[in-house]
Each structure stands twice: as structure tokens, then as C-alpha cells.
Amino acid sequence: MLDRSELAVEDLLKIILLLVIALLVLEIIGLFVEVLASISPVVALVIVVLIIAYLLDYI
């Protein structure tokens, strides 16, 4: 049976490191979504049209 006192300090530091990395990844994803949301609708429409034209082999 695992006793609470048997949990090593290194294991706790690894858990904290993983949580900090997860927080940083979420912050970066949030920043990326915010940048995408700030693009004007006209530019987004042009990007969508270009992608569709590429997929349909018009360009």
C-alpha cells in the first residue's frame, strides 16, 4: 500500500512541471485563437476562397 509519505519530492516537482507546461500550452493556444479572431472577416473570406479554389484545382 502506498503511503503518502513515500511520495518523493522529485515526483511532486514532475507533477508541478507538467501542470505549468499545460498552463503555458493553454495560454499559447488562447493567444493563437485571439489572433485568429482579430483577423477581419474579409481576409478570412479570401483565405477560405483560396483554399476551396486550391482543393478544386482552379489554381
Rank of each mutant, 00 (worst) to 15 (best):
10 E>G: 03
26 L>R: 08
49 V>L: 14
17 L>G: 05
1 M>W: 04
24 L>P: 01
3 D>M: 10
2 L>R: 11
52 I>N: 02
34 E>F: 08
25 V>F: 08
51 I>S: 02
57 D>F: 09
37 A>N: 15
14 K>D: 11
10 E>C: 02
37 A>C: 04
31 L>E: 13
40 S>Q: 07
46 V>K: 14
13 L>N: 06
18 L>P: 01
58 Y>N: 10
46 V>M: 11
56 L>S: 06
55 L>K: 11
44 A>I: 02
11 D>K: 01
4 R>I: 04
35 V>Q: 09
27 E>R: 11
43 V>S: 09
4 R>D: 08
33 V>Y: 12
39 I>L: 14
35 V>F: 10
4 R>W: 01
29 I>T: 06
24 L>V: 06
30 G>M: 10
19 L>I: 05
30 G>D: 12
43 V>H: 03
35 V>I: 13
58 Y>C: 08
5 S>D: 14
39 I>R: 09
56 L>H: 01
50 L>Q: 05
20 V>W: 00
42 V>T: 15
3 D>K: 12
36 L>Q: 10
45 L>M: 11
58 Y>F: 15
38 S>A: 10
48 V>Q: 01
6 E>N: 08
55 L>F: 01
35 V>Y: 09
4 R>H: 03
3 D>H: 11
25 V>N: 07
47 I>F: 13
46 V>H: 03
35 V>N: 08
12 L>E: 06
4 R>T: 02
28 I>V: 14
43 V>K: 05
9 V>Y: 05
49 V>N: 07
31 L>W: 15
13 L>H: 03
59 I>Y: 02
21 I>L: 04
11 D>Q: 05
55 L>R: 05
10 E>D: 13
15 I>Q: 11
4 R>A: 02
6 E>S: 12
2 L>T: 02
53 A>V: 03
19 L>Y: 05
45 L>P: 00
18 L>W: 07
47 I>C: 07
3 D>E: 14
34 E>C: 00
5 S>P: 00
12 L>Y: 01
28 I>E: 10
11 D>M: 01
36 L>R: 07
45 L>H: 07
46 V>Q: 14
17 L>Q: 08
58 Y>Q: 13
36 L>C: 04
49 V>T: 06
23 L>W: 06
27 E>V: 15
16 I>Y: 12
42 V>P: 01
49 V>W: 09
9 V>P: 05
39 I>K: 10
25 V>T: 08
33 V>W: 09
23 L>V: 08
16 I>G: 02
12 L>A: 01
49 V>G: 12
35 V>S: 06
25 V>Q: 05
29 I>V: 14
26 L>T: 03
20 V>G: 00
41 P>K: 13
43 V>T: 13
6 E>C: 03
36 L>N: 12
38 S>L: 05
2 L>M: 06
39 I>G: 00
52 I>D: 04
28 I>W: 14
35 V>A: 11
16 I>A: 15
34 E>S: 10
29 I>L: 12
53 A>G: 12
59 I>S: 00
8 A>V: 01
48 V>D: 01
27 E>F: 15
24 L>M: 08
38 S>N: 07
11 D>F: 00
27 E>K: 13
2 L>K: 07
20 V>P: 00
2 L>G: 04
27 E>M: 15
28 I>Y: 14
17 L>F: 02
